[in-house]
Design a protein around this nucleic acid. Structure first.
Lengths: 163, 163
DNA sequence: CATGAAAGTAACTCTCG
DNA sequence: CGAGAGTTACTTTCATG
């Protein structure tokens, strides 16, 4: 299994378009990337099979669905299986990351209001220490990702490349 | 504008299906939720117009696109506009949350390797203090979200409701 | 319910090892 | 000359008034 599954320029264009709008037709996608409909369909099929495209999801507005508060909970080290089980039993958890460092877990949750937030935080407090902060706004969310290309990395201006 | 835009049971089913697979046809969606194809089409259109559905995106596999490391960077308080500008200039940032607390920002980033991680972290270090941890695994990612219903909240067992 | 567009299938062409 | 990828042509299914 190659890491960067030889994504050529067409595949990058296709991934960009589908990350912007996953519901465009294959015919329209073909027009945008300048390929015939069967050709893009085949490429998309391969991207799906190789696992580059994991799926297609509708993106919903949490506030409009009644979730007034988004929060980040950092959870200190605790028995791994217990945390995972608790996450599984907590639908309010949108994203759950097991991370390095003292805070073993970073959870992103959506709750209705403060009392709901209290209820969810308490569930994790029972396990171990937690630290909660509320999301005020999100200038970037689920940004588009293109195939990694080393030459795109802009180094910070810390080149102390003496010698 | 109502907060919880009167989502009935059909709308909930529709949102669930579209969050699982945003590319199903309206005909198929109709079959799954037991509505006629024009009926679901109209409902989806309204969910889009009301902003409940913000869009549809292909979900990609970061590792297969060449991003070997995902990390969370917590960034301490700094001039708001400067941070936003830096985020805008940093495509590695997948999600950026401005939050309450001492760490004003929580960033989720995708990088190729450690040296790339170094480059990105350094950009933010120049502004203010940061704290970085690496994502080891994610037991839950972009979980499905249904309309908030108060009766679904399971309170933690801390009911000290004496009197 | 009818019309036009899109998806899926098949046969053919082109290029590259 | 064979494998892979693209295009065109055609049928079925889907979207829209």
């Amino acid at each position: 299994m190659t890491e960067t599954n030889e994504c050529d320029h067409y595949d990058s264009r296709i991934l960009a378009e589908l990350q912007q709008d996953a519901r465009i037709t294959m015919a329209e996608l073909g027009r945008r990337v300048h390929l015939s409909q069967p050709a893009v369909t085949e490429r998309v099929r391969k991207l799906e099979l190789s696992g580059v495209i994991k799926g297609y999801r509708a993106e919903v507005d949490l506030a409009r669905l009644g979730y007034g508060i988004r929060a980040i909970i950092r959870v200190a080290r605790a028995e791994y299986a217990r945390v995972v089980r608790l996450i599984e039993q907590t639908p309010e958890v949108i994203n759950a990351y097991n991370v390095t460092g003292d805070d073993s877990w970073v959870l992103e949750i959506a709750v209705i209001d403060v009392s709901h937030l209290d209820a969810v935080v308490t569930k994790f407090c029972i396990l171990t220490e937690t630290s909660t902060c509320i999301v005020l706004n999100a200038p970037r969310e689920n940004a588009m990702v293109l195939p990694a290309r080393r030459e795109n990395i802009k180094p910070a201006i810390k080149k102390v490349t003496g010698k």
